[in-house]
Simulated assay, not measured.
Amino acid sequence: MAPTLYPELFMWRVVVLFCAVLSGTPDCARVSARKVNPKIVSDVTIWTSGVEGEIAGYRTPFMTYTPNGTILALAGARKYNKKDNGKKIISLRRSTDKGVTWTPTAFLVDDGYDHGVLGAGTAFVDDDSNTTFVMFIHCQFRCAVPSVLLMNSTNDGVTWGQPRNITPQLQPGVVSHPSPGYGIRKRYEPHKGRLVVCAHGRGPDWGLSLLLSDDGGRTWRTGAFVAKRPCNDSCRGENQQHMFQLGECQPVELPDGSLLVMTRNELRCTCHCKAFLTSHDGGESLPISSLRFDQTLIEPPTDAGLLFSDGVLYFTGPNSSSKRQKMTLRWSYDNGTSWAGELPIWEKAAGYSAVTMLQKDPEDKNYLYVLYEKGFSKTGTSTAAIAFAKIQL
């Protein structure tokens, strides 16, 4: 394509190339974002609760790309009922044609018990080694300290290695449940190449932790940890509703190398909305001084999707402060300081969501992919199905 035909597009690509050469310098963080006008291309159901694979409920979707351009859609398949403490299996479907067709459902991990001990989970990619990982928790409701397990695939999710227990490498006493969503591989300094997974805890150690690996996923350790805390100095924790309790979380990396971490605001501290923290040291710490609440990103509360690409921050979640309904895409050109627009994806019941984007071909960055819990009425359950939406940017 001749640059003179589309000068604005050409200049945008030159600026992005310049930013890549700078590789995370402060000047790179000030590059203007591309402008987007999202439109839904397709929205298809890929799992139906009570139908697919004799599974009572498909919940907690999470998703990732692979270096070769395959989309992996995963979910917690709840065998007998949809409850959190029921028997679960990790389910997987793969698409090699950008969501047009999908492989039959594969079941990766059976929790081994009739009562729930498995929590799914987070997926992430090491592009250098062409390795895709799935991290999940085991013995969630049966053990004082649940185990964090990690499994990987080097052939785009066709086959997987045996899960291995990384719990002994993590901080003792901190319960780490990898949140539904995806982990990231840092592209900029500090700690370029580091793998970062956001996890949340339950029980007395309820909080948020970042799990870090600097050797491609071979070894892990606990970085930042933020415990639940009073909403403000006047609340001493006697009333739990006055606590800031962190839940499912999602990190993204910004062009200056900082990590922006979104968390579920479980007890609705300050507002019925999402909370954010920022790390400037590669996930070693998440200063509470960076905590902010986003009044625009209202929530019921629930898990939500977050992704940063080419200067644009994308968010997916229910557009409601009280009910899991109205799945909506929002986008920001200033790292979430303000939100430039919104696109309704589904007007009826909708819950958890995850987002991804293919990385191999520049043309692939014109599409965003959303996996979300879907219901078929405004007042009914949001867990009737899991749907996959393809959105042109």
Rank of each mutant, 00 (worst) to 15 (best):
A2K: 14
R13I: 00
L17V: 11
A20S: 13
G24E: 09
P26W: 02
V31T: 08
N37G: 08
S42I: 10
T45P: 03
T45W: 03
V51N: 11
A56D: 08
G57A: 11
Y58F: 15
T60Q: 12
P61H: 06
F62I: 01
Y65T: 07
L74I: 00
K79W: 08
K79P: 01
Y80E: 09
Y80N: 14
N81V: 08
I90E: 05
R94D: 02
S95K: 10
S95Y: 07
S95R: 08
S95A: 10
T96I: 13
T101K: 09
P104S: 14
V109G: 01
Y113V: 00
D114S: 14
V117E: 01
F124P: 05
D128K: 11
D128F: 09
S129Q: 13
T131A: 05
T132D: 06
V134W: 03
F136E: 03
I137Y: 00
H138L: 07
Q140M: 15
Q140V: 00
L149N: 05
L149K: 13
L150H: 07
M151I: 12
T154R: 13
G157D: 06
V158L: 13
P163F: 02
N165G: 02
N165W: 07
P168A: 06
Q169R: 03
Q169G: 07
V174Q: 11
S176M: 15
P180F: 09
G181Y: 04
Y188W: 14
K192D: 02
L195M: 14
V196R: 13
V196I: 14
G203M: 04
P204H: 02
L208G: 10
L211T: 12
D214K: 01
G217D: 09
T219P: 01
K228C: 00
C231W: 03
D233Y: 03
G237F: 06
E238S: 15
Q240E: 14
M243V: 12
L246I: 08
Q250C: 08
E253A: 10
E253R: 04
D256W: 05
G257F: 04
T270I: 07
A275D: 12
S279Y: 07
G283R: 11
S285C: 04
R292M: 02
D294F: 05
Q295K: 14
P300N: 03
P301C: 15
T302H: 02
G305T: 07
D310K: 08
G311D: 06
G317M: 04
N319V: 00
S321Y: 07
Q325L: 07
Q325P: 00
L329W: 08
L329T: 04
W331S: 11
I345P: 02
W346R: 10
S353L: 11
D361L: 13
P362L: 12
Y372G: 09
K378Y: 13
T381M: 00
F388R: 11
